[in-house]
């Protein structure tokens, strides 16, 4: 088995994220994005980050993607007549993206640090360890994030409310 699990899952995540971009129908894009997030969950499990795997599963696949699907159904956009960008813009976008990835990988090759990833502490990503970290040094940001979520909720309700004329 070895490390082939990682390469298989990495191939799957790249494949499905390409499908997200090139699918014509937005509903298909959302469904492919859900599969992509599932492969990310598998990556987290392989890294022994079990808390993050569960949170990724619940928050991303459960909450955010359902919100996307819900809005798509609400807007009635699941038809195939989406106007596409002109061919020139598409080609330029893809060329720019390829330049970006070539630059990133080339600069990584120049540094040439490639020691294998070793899990030194098997308890690193478990709930007990992360909870101690979250409610110890990161207490203030944790509480501030609750204010952020409350602000986002108020903003979303205010934005979508119909204005009284």
């Amino acid at each position: 088995m070895g490390t082939s699990v990682f390469y298989l899952v990495a191939f799957l995540s790249i494949f499905f994220s390409l499908m997200v971009i090139f699918a014509k129908n937005p509903v298909h894009s959302v469904l492919y994005l859900i599969v992509t997030f599932f492969t990310f969950t598998v990556h987290y499990i392989l890294l022994n980050a079990q808390f993050l795997a569960v949170v990724n599963f619940i928050v991303y696949m459960g909450a955010i993607m359902v919100l996307f699907l819900f809005v798509l159904m609400l807007l009635n956009l699941n038809k195939e007549n989406e106007p596409l960008k002109s061919g020139l813009v598409k080609v330029v976008g893809i060329v720019a993206g390829c330049c970006l990835v070539v630059t990133l990988i080339g600069s990584l090759k120049a540094t040439a640090v490639s020691d294998p990833l070793v899990l030194q502490n098997p308890n690193l990503g478990l709930v007990k360890n992360l909870g101690k970290e979250l409610f110890g040094p990161f207490m203030l940001p944790f509480e501030l994030s609750s204010i952020l979520l409350l602000t986002a909720m108020v903003g979303a309700v205010l934005l979508t409310k119909k204005e009284k004329v």
């Binding site: 490390t3 390469y7 997200v20 392989l46 720019a96 993206g97 970006l100 990833l117």
Partner: peptide
């Protein structure tokens, strides 16, 4: 089974997926 994966391969994977997002 994870132990043998080099760190560079994780960086490559993240770079490729980030680039796919940029292209999108």
């Amino acid at each position: 089974t994870l132990q043998g994966v080099p760190l560079n391969h994780y960086i490559w994977l993240s770079a490729i997926i980030f680039t796919i997002g940029v292209i999108g």
